[in-house]
């Protein structure tokens, strides 16, 4: 079963991400591509909990009205160096007020965990087989690479100079 990091804990994941080109829907809890959701929203509605995943160039505004009914929203990183998903996540969390599980899928690697979390992802799904159990356990340390980041983001909306009185000299 694929592994997932949720709020800093490793868990087994029972959702299935339906590929972009899929024509048949498997059984179980599904995270479907935006295109499929768009054309089959009513058919999908009766199936129980549902997730939608977005490609880097999908506009999160498209699912804004449906967000309260979605159990998971996933954002795909086909390549980890494609940073569009960070803005997608920030928009979902702020402009569209999404409060449910926001999952990073695709090429999700430990050296991006910190930035992903800061932009509002609370679930991180590295590619299956990319990390051994021990490596994944060790990778949790990357969630805390920096203890007091400078700027405000989704996880801590206030910049460091609002969070703390600054000016104390370095030890």
């Amino acid at each position: 079963m694929p592994k997932l990091i949720v709020h800093g804990q490793i868990r087994n994941d029972d959702w299935q991400v339906v590929p972009a080109q899929a024509t048949e829907l498997p059984n179980g809890k599904l995270i479907v591509p935006l295109a499929l959701w768009r054309e089959a929203a009513t058919r999908l509605a009766g199936r129980g909990p549902l997730g939608v995943w977005l490609q880097p160039d999908d506009d999160p505004a498209e699912i804004a009205d449906a967000l309260p009914s979605l159990a998971v929203v996933a954002v795909d990183f086909p390549k980890f160096a494609d940073g569009r998903g960070y803005s997608t996540a920030a928009l979902l969390r702020t402009r569209y007020g999404y409060q449910g599980e926001l999952r990073a899928i695709g090429e999700v690697l430990r050296d991006q965990f910190f930035y992903l979390t800061r932009c509002g992802f609370d679930a991180l799904q590295p590619p299956e087989g990319r990390y051994t159990d021990a490596q994944l356990e060790a990778a949790l340390a990357s969630l805390a690479d920096f203890s007091e980041p400078y700027q405000g983001a989704i996880d801590r909306p206030e910049p460091v100079w609002r969070r703390h009185a600054r000016g104390g000299l370095a030890a």
């Binding site: 940073g83 960070y86 803005s87 991006q112 910190f114 992903l116 932009c119 920096f146 400078y150 700027q151």
Partner: peptide
Amino acid sequence: TFHPEFAY
């Protein structure tokens, strides 16, 4: 510095 949204 380490702006999370604009690193990639």
